[in-house]
Design a protein around this nucleic acid. Structure first.
Lengths: 144, 144
DNA sequence: ATTCATGCAAAATCTTTGCACTGAT
DNA sequence: ATCAGTGCAAAGATTTTGCATGAAT
């Protein structure tokens, strides 16, 4: 945890951004809830517990910054809100998601199942892939 | 074109919805711009050209209805708006997208490249897949 | 001093809703 | 007469922006 914070701090510094207390509090919330897919409002509420003075706009600005630096990925599952998901350290691809249409749970697939597909897309469509988003909607194992 | 309208009309009737002039105008705009990925506002503006009295709310309600009936798919590429994409007739899967981060173009892949991946997900994660969303972000062949 | 970041409130966007009205059965 | 569908305006929800203030170098 502390080490990941430290590395994120360095990553910010290397682009001449600071890890302010507000930003650190936000990153900690993301780390502590790595399995969830928090909206900006969710993050805001959780940060407030430990840092009540923080403003919602700061959370938005921090999440935007972290997205730019590819520390988090912004994703939208089709309800009206953007959600923010910490990238696995060292991962060069964004993981996949399983969204249950029964219970709403969102599970993650960390393995990259798209290697073969991406090769096909790159050669057949002459498209240089930089990132991907893969989400399955269906019934999770718990709901079956 | 007329035949597709006719089939959509039947599909609506089978669920006791009507193909009102407003709905037909909206569907026609979607058919005429099948290659684009129009937002509700885009659709509204285009429908207005031929049917100036239409209201934005009606367009939203129509798009919602068409989404429910799986005539169109609602998708979000990460800019703030939902976009609406006609499903290929008879297609039981949603096609894939290539979003160019240079020029913003969105190309479509109609082939289903996910068959193998879906088999793996269904068995390994015990997840019953009903739908999917696959989008690649990168550089399109025109921008390279 | 300067610069970057923050908090608050206001504004901007996108989407949904309430309601009176219309049009078809 | 009923009832689904419509248009308009208002409300709701999410996100962004302007600006004065504050913290750090």
């Amino acid at each position: 945890m502390e080490q990941r914070i430290e590395r994120i701090k360095k990553q910010l510094h290397s682009q001449s951004y600071k890890l302010t207390p507000q930003r650190e509090a936000t990153v900690r919330v993301l780390l502590e809830n790595e399995d969830d897919h928090l909206s900006a409002e969710d993050v805001y509420m959780l940060v407030k517990e430990k840092y009540p003075e923080i403003g919602l706009a700061t959370v938005y600005r921090t999440l935007e910054l972290l997205t730019e630096l590819k520390i988090v990925d912004k994703i939208n599952f089709g309800d009206g809100v953007s959600r923010y998901d910490l990238r696995q350290e060292g991962a060069n691809h964004f993981h996949h998601h399983l969204v249950c249409i029964e219970c709403g749970a969102v599970d993650e697939i960390q393995e990259d199942l798209l290697d073969d597909v991406e090769k096909i897309v790159e050669t057949r469509w002459k498209f240089k892939i930089k990132d991907h988003r893969l989400t399955f909607h269906g019934i999770c194992h718990r709901c079956q």
